[in-house]
């Protein structure tokens, strides 16, 4: 394996797949167009088929079929990783995930395990339009038996980088199925190393039970006590971080940013801890506004904090088809300016 550390989320995830293949012969990659030299639509699997030709399988356009097969493979001892080329296509695998893979362990009374990882890129901002830009993980959040993860672009201590370590752990260090949410623009983000993180106070915490996925709480070093808690995951964590800067430097509003990597089952303790300091919550996501992750975070926070939660709000996508036009697409999606505006209103109120 390469000695150099990954620079981007894409490199980190790629490294993790290669490391998992190298470390365990039970690991297998399945997906459409994932063979070299193409290496997958977003190149996450690049190099894998060259290094491990027997364990990287290109498949027909049969998302349900390959996901269902992966379930059977996992029941009989393999550790398959399925790539769904676009997150939008995850609707095609819903039955396989919800009525098969996520159920096996529970409905067979704990007698089996199904360690399947399904990776897929969600997200817009590339002009792919209505059916190749959606953020659909909310369809899978709350499904019993399923872990839903989304990486944060930290370099971290792992040689794989934090996104890669999270993926590696989901492939090899747990026995249940995982829906691993990637994001097309997040692939290109530079991993935040010690240099980039110098200006922050950063705490990483792990839930006492459930998947060992880090949750990061960030604030500007030396800032006054925070007035509002922002929470976001995946690519939106980057936009939230930009907003946190501008809120401080342009508006003298100081925020904490809580970035979970395990979305479901929710691991909200670090969020609660931040809210006890700020009393204000702004949940930020790229999915549509209603019935989503942000709604759940608000509900959990209200249940936990009661009147100590003074204000709560959400930033999310409009509830309409995602347009191809760059202008229309930008207007459809949550932007840094939306986060700033809502945070200001919340603190002013």
């Amino acid at each position: 394996m390469s000695e150099t550390r990954p620079a981007t989320v894409l490199q980190s995830l790629n490294l993790a797949l290669r490391q998992a293949l190298a470390d365990d012969p039970r690991v297998l990659l399945l997906g459409e167009d994932i063979l070299d030299p193409y290496g997958g639509a977003f190149k996450v699997t690049r190099g894998c088929s060259t290094a491990f030709p027997d364990r990287v399988l290109t498949t027909p356009i049969s998302e349900a079929g390959i996901t269902g097969l992966a379930g059977g493979m996992a029941l009989r001892g393999l550790r398959p990783v399925v790539e769904i080329m676009f997150g939008d296509f995850s609707t095609l695998i819903a039955d396989q995930v919800l009525n098969h893979i996520a159920k096996f362990h529970g409905m067979y009374n704990g007698q089996v395990s199904a360690p399947v990882v399904i990776r897929t890129p969600m997200g817009a901002r590339r002009g792919y339009g209505p059916t190749h830009s959606q953020t659909l993980e909310k369809l899978f959040l709350g499904a019993p038996g399923l872990t839903v993860l989304a990486p944060f672009h930290l370099l971290g201590a792992s040689p794989l980088g934090a996104p890669g370590q999270l993926l590696y752990d989901s492939i090899l260090r747990q026995d249940g199925p995982t829906f691993f949410v990637e994001n097309k623009l997040q692939y290109l983000l530079k991993l935040l190393g010690p240099e980039a993180l110098r200006e922050y106070d950063l705490r990483e915490s792990f839930s006492a039970d459930g998947f060992p996925a880090p949750c990061t709480t960030l604030s500007l070093k030396g800032a006054p006590p925070p007035q509002v808690t922002l929470t976001a995951y995946g690519y939106m964590a980057d936009l939230a971080l930009q907003a946190l800067h501008r809120l401080a430097y342009e508006h003298e509003i100081f925020a904490e940013l809580v970035i979970p990597t395990c979305l479901s089952p929710a691991q909200p303790d670090p969020l609660f801890a931040s809210l006890r300091r700020t009393g204000r919550l702004l949940a930020i996501e790229e999915g549509t506004f209603s019935w989503g992750w942000g709604a759940e975070m608000l509900a959990r926070s209200a249940e936990e904090l009661g009147p100590a939660l003074k204000r709560a709000g959400r930033v999310a996508a409009r509830e309409a088809v995602i347009p191809v036009s760059a202008e229309l697409e930008a207007a459809h999606l949550p932007q840094v300016s939306d986060i700033i505006r809502q945070a200001r209103e919340m603190v002013a109120a």
Partner: peptide
């Protein structure tokens, strides 16, 4: 399993693993 169709996928994946 009580879901129609998916059991063939399960069986196919098992045959692959075996």
């Amino acid at each position: 399993n009580g879901i129609q169709g998916g059991t063939l996928a399960m069986a196919a994946g098992m045959a692959f693993a075996e």
